[in-house]
Write a protein that binds this DNA or RNA. Structure first.
Lengths: 155, 155
DNA sequence: AATCTCAAGTCAATATAGTTGACATGAGGA
DNA sequence: TCCTCATGTCAACTATATTGACTTGAGATT
């Protein structure tokens, strides 16, 4: 293994399993990584990262969302939103305008360029999912969704 | 919504679906969150966080692992490992000793206290998985594993 | 008009998790 | 003695987040 990077690329390690469900924990970890890897690489090429993508993703699916609602959906503080959102506004991936009736809030929308970035980044993730679903079959895909829903809605 | 925290708790948002697989992307996101939420809360109570847990998890499953191998498995730089590992050594959750033959490398092991922390943190994650598998059924659990493997091993 | 409320924006300080680069230490092998 | 190699450490930097305190600007209320 030549002289690549000090931080090696993290290829699924084979660890002893102490418990029945250890394999499931590890699959969740490496699955998350596997789904986001290419999208993150694409975003990095654009000078963006995952927080930017999350903003683009949500605004794409909720045009005219107000900043306050966006904060709620993302689950972060407005100070944390500030930097990435301003970058997206500066680079004209997102526009903001005041609401006609509710002049207090600002409504966010993607520009055409913003839509393109969002689509390409999400496409990387969707392609990973599509290939995995294709390999495992449609009924497995449905089962995967059911299990993930149970995990997401835990408690 | 009273005056809780500026960063609200992030409850699965209902976003419009622009693509077929958008639901899958969101499930991966919220699933990852759902699995790690309680474990992270437990670790925070112990003054630890996810990197510490990852170290404990790996060392538990590879007793006498050398630092260099640990770096490889974790996929981070030795400088990034330094702080969390030193904390674990200070707090006597991990011990290091020199190898009898290979005096160059240090071998890491969990103490009893370290094993307890690792087990409890991982238990939180395993419990989430167990409940989800129970709800979805054994064949769905197997399908979930197959899909996650395909995602993790993507290219 | 003066004041209150509320969404948004901003500034400062802090924590965490990581990076690269440079260099020191200590043990074995040539 | 000198070289290699695993480990350790220092410094500087980046990114992503937090809390707290405050300002701004628009509407609503008295």
């Amino acid at each position: 293994m030549a002289k690549t990077s000090q931080a090696a690329g993290l290829h699924r390690a084979s660890l002893d399993k102490l418990h029945d469900l250890d394999a499931a924990l590890e699959l969740m970890y490496y699955g998350w990584r596997g789904m986001t890897l290419e999208a993150d690489a694409y975003l990095a090429k654009q000078g963006l990262s995952r927080p930017h993508h999350r903003i683009l993703y949500v605004v794409a699916r909720r045009p005219d969302i107000a900043i306050g609602s966006l904060l709620e959906v993302l689950g972060i503080s407005k100070q944390a939103l500030n930097r990435p959102l301003n970058l997206l506004l500066e680079r004209k991936f997102v526009t903001s305008r005041r609401s006609p009736e509710q002049h207090r809030s600002k409504l966010l929308r993607l520009t055409a360029a913003g839509q393109r970035i969002e689509q390409r980044a999400s496409d990387h993730e969707r392609n990973v999912m599509r290939q995995a679903f294709d390999r495992a079959g449609a009924s497995s895909a449905a089962a995967w969704m059911a299990v993930m829903e149970a995990i997401a809605d835990h408690n």
